[in-house]
Nucleic acid binder design. Structure first.
Length: 217
DNA sequence: TACCAGGAGAAAA
DNA sequence: TTTTCTCATGGT
């Protein structure tokens, strides 16, 4: 069976470094993580541009607005009423740390993750995206692309939980937080550009490891 | 026109 | 406990 490390090398050689997350500051990363829930990044870029244009892309500035004030600014991302509440919920939590990422640095990763998951609107993928890309914590981000691609390759069966898949990557993928960062970005790149459009992509879907190859051979 | 996109939580079964 | 429903805009 092909290994997680081997697939990482193939993706990196094929696409090159992705320089993720697309965001200028940790705050922009955490806001982007909420806004991109179940929607394409293109929709998110519009909302981020509006927030920046209004000079609201800082914790203190955005915290002055109620959810109802945030909602119309993020319409392009869909589910805007829910997402506005989620952002406000996050800021309520963040205020306990003085709206300062510096203050979060002393916190242990596990407890920080637990606190984020307790915020209504932040699930495992959003929490791990924030922790990895905004706070540099070593946690693998599992998303729909990860499930689809690695099921297609044959490493997953398709019914695994988020926790189960993350545990697999933590146990079998050898790399530092910078590799976790890059691997997830490459998975998204591959999922968007190649694996969604070509059933047998020839990069990750190699021979017997691809479900389509299994069906047609 | 129909379908999908870097989820999460509540309600129903 | 597991499955289904709801949230909603924008691109293909």
């Amino acid at each position: 069976m092909i290994t997680l490390n081997r697939i990482y090398k193939i993706f990196l050689a094929t696409y090159g470094p992705q320089h993720w997350w697309p965001g200028e500051t940790p705050f922009e990363v955490v806001i982007g993580a909420i806004l991109t829930q179940n929607v394409s990044w293109k929709n998110v870029e519009t909302a981020i541009a509006i927030l920046k244009d209004r000079r609201l892309m800082t914790p203190r500035a955005l915290y002055t607005l109620p959810a109802a004030g945030i909602a119309p600014l993020i319409r392009s991302t869909g589910y805007y009423n829910q997402k506005a509440k989620k952002i406000h919920n996050f800021l309520e939590w963040f205020a306990r740390y003085g709206l300062s990422f510096k203050r979060l640095e002393a916190e242990e990763t596990g407890s920080l993750r637990g606190e984020l998951l307790a915020v209504n609107g932040i699930g495992p993928e959003t929490a791990d995206s924030m922790l990895l890309y905004a706070m540099g914590r070593k946690l693998f981000v599992v998303d729909a692309y990860t499930m689809r691609i690695f099921t297609r390759i044959g490493i997953l069966s398709g019914g695994e939980t988020y926790a189960k898949v993350q545990e697999l990557f933590h146990r079998r993928f050898r790399g530092g937080p910078e590799d976790y960062n890059e691997y997830h970005a490459l998975i998204v790149k591959h999922g968007k550009d190649v694996c969604r459009k070509k059933p047998l992509c020839g990069v990750c879907c190699v021979g017997r490891y691809c479900e389509y190859a299994l069906k047609h051979n």
